Structure formats: C-alpha cells, structure tokens
Simulated scan of single mutants.
Amino acid sequence: MKAHRLFRYLPLLAIASVSADTFELKDGTKFEGTIVKEDGSDYIISVQVTKSIKDERRVPKANVVNQTAERKDETEFPEIAKLVPAPDLQTAEVYHAQANKVEAFIKKYPQSPKKGEALKVLAALQKEMDVVNAGGIKFEGKLMSANDRLPKAYALDAGIQAAEMKAAADKGDPVSALRAWTKLETGFQGSTAYRENIPYVVKLMKAQLTAVSSSLASFDARTKKRAEGLAAMSSSDRNMSNSALQEELDEYMARLEKDKAAGHKWPPLDAYVKAPLEETKRNLETEIRRLETTPTANLPKTEEAYDAAWAAVTKTGATQQDVSTALSNARSASLPQPYVDILTKAAPAPAPSN
C-alpha cells in the first residue's frame, strides 16, 4: 500500500488514535500510530481508524522525518494529579485505593519527570488517610483529627449531615437527600445546621412534590401505553419482555420491603408502582405544612448546650459539681447520648477518696 493511501486517513487518525507514537512525514503531515514491524525500506504501522477498528499502513522509512515516542506517563498523570485535593468526607477505603493507584504509577514510570509530583500527591493522600484512619475527617476543606473534632462535635456532625443532604440533591437523588434530612432532624434538631436548612429542604420537598404529582397524573396513560406496546409484540418477544419487567418489579419490591424494615421514611420510587408514589405525595404535603409553620425559636438549643458543657468540663480546675451541672444542662437540652458520652470522657476523673 502506497504512502498516499495513508494520507486520506490522517485527519481521522489524529482524532481516533489513543495510544501511539507521533510520525512526521517530509510534507509536514503528522499522524499517530505504532510500528508493527519493519519490511525492508518500509515501516508497517498500525493505526487506530476508529475506537474499535485498527488498520495497517505501509510507509517508506525515507518519508518519515521525525518519530516522537508517546509519553504514556504524561497522558496518565492527569488522572493522578486530580486526586488532590481530596474531597470532603472521603473514607479511608477510598484514600487507600487512591494511594495504591499513585504507587502503581510511580512503579510503572520510575524515571518519569512526573515522579516528583506523583510523590507529592501520594504524601498528601497518605497524610489525610492517616488522620481519617485515626477517627478524623476532612470537612469544608479542613482536615481535623479525632481530638480536633471534640470541642464542636455536635455542630460539626450536624453540618456534615446537612452537607450529605445537599450533595445527594445535587446529584439528582431526592430520595437520598430526604433521608439525610430525616437523619439531621432526628439527631440534630437543636443544631444551627437544622434551623438554617429548613428553607432549603422545603424547597427540595416542593420540587419533589411537583415531580411525584406529575408522575401520578400520567400514571394511567403511562401504564396503558406500556401495555399496548407489549400487546403489539410477537408472542415470544412479549414473553421475554414480561419476564424482564417482572424481574425488575421483584427486585424493586424486595428493595422496598428492605427499606421499610430499616425504618426509612422515604421509599424508593418506581414510575410503574403507584402506592409508594401516593405515600410519598402524602408525606411531602404533610412535611411541607409542618416545616413551614415550625417555630424555630422554640427548638432546643442543643448545640449551644454542648458548647457550654464542653467549656465547663474542660476548664482548668473544673470540679465534680461543675461537671455534673454541665452534663445535666446538656441532657435537658436534648443532647443525644453519644455526645453526653464525649463530654463525660473529656471531664476530669473524680478525685480519689481518702
């Protein structure tokens, strides 16, 4: 095959090649490919015509004025570089997997000019992973050890729950967002994060109510259209489709029962199962009315109570009476037991009796 036949493919090859060297010909044309073998005075070059199709081209060696080897470390490094800064609330397991990925890159390309940058990425990941493994977290871009969390543990955990709600909503997962809200309301009703996010969740609920109401309004037409589509199929195709639909329904109903047993207030939704849609609509209407009339001034001041109790039990010279009063006040403000336990652990040990 003559070289000019290759030129017809050059614009395409420049786009389609994924992993190859760059060849420059005498006329200035450049393309990407991989030398398969040398045949006398010619190169046999494998080129990627499309993502799934390769072709071999014969190119005279004399026509090649420059061949630049692909730097795979250069093309792979951007995936390594974007691992930092790590996002908030990343788990130790994710940190570990990312560190392994960086280590594999360094091992694969020990002479790479990018090795120094990769080592910095690895060091940053390992530093944060060590903190998370020891009970710390990264939140709002700040890395906090387990001990750093304690003075503001209640407010911090409430803020994390609110952030998880918003993250789920941003991903287009309103059911998970509403479940996160339920956790925030159940465990942190006396927090600033709860009070400040009431308008946000009301807006979220109204948007979900609109979507669910629309789905219910079109439910009969939708199920009728699907039934008509099935009826128009051949018998064998209809049987296969019905089997597939039944399998999907069984999986959905099993998930529904599992979530119900777990006590989830907001069920997963399926466009062809009416009862959960109706239940969600009722719950949304009730919750919107309740939240819009909630007197936030009457909510417990749990966050303030925790902060005050922490200051009291950790102050220099705190007495057992100071500790007892602080814990009593915290409990009166509806502080959940895990946070009472934090305060109790932080308090000075009782003086030994004589």
Rank of each mutant, 00 (worst) to 15 (best):
K2V: 05
H4T: 11
Y9I: 06
L13A: 06
A14T: 13
A16E: 13
S19F: 13
A20V: 08
T22R: 15
T22M: 09
T22C: 13
E24N: 09
D27G: 02
T34Q: 13
Y43V: 02
I44K: 14
S46E: 15
K51N: 13
E56R: 09
E56Y: 12
V59A: 03
P60A: 09
K61F: 03
E74F: 08
T75P: 02
P85A: 05
A92M: 00
Y95N: 04
H96Q: 11
H96W: 01
H96Y: 08
K101D: 03
E103K: 13
K108H: 02
Y109W: 10
Y109A: 01
Q111F: 13
S112P: 04
G116H: 11
K120F: 06
L122G: 10
L122P: 09
L122I: 11
K138W: 04
F139D: 05
E140N: 15
G141C: 02
R149Q: 12
A153G: 08
A153D: 11
L156H: 15
M165Q: 08
M165F: 08
M165I: 08
A168D: 12
A169D: 14
G172H: 07
S176N: 14
E185Y: 11
G187A: 09
S191G: 03
P199H: 03
Y200Q: 12
V201E: 08
K206M: 09
K206P: 01
L209Q: 13
T210D: 12
A211T: 13
D220F: 05
A221K: 15
R222Y: 12
R226I: 05
G229Y: 10
A231C: 01
A231Q: 04
M233Q: 12
M233N: 02
N239W: 10
N239P: 03
D250V: 04
D250C: 02
D250M: 07
A254E: 14
A254C: 06
R255K: 11
E257F: 07
G263I: 02
H264Y: 15
H264A: 11
P267A: 02
L269C: 10
V273P: 10
E278W: 12
T280H: 05
L284P: 12
E287A: 03
I288K: 00
I288S: 01
E292T: 05
N298H: 14
K301A: 10
E303M: 00
E303G: 05
D307T: 12
V313Q: 06
K315A: 01
T316L: 12
G317P: 09
T319N: 07
A326M: 07
A330I: 07
A330N: 02
S334R: 15
Y339W: 05
V340T: 12
D341G: 08
P350G: 00
P350L: 02
N354S: 14
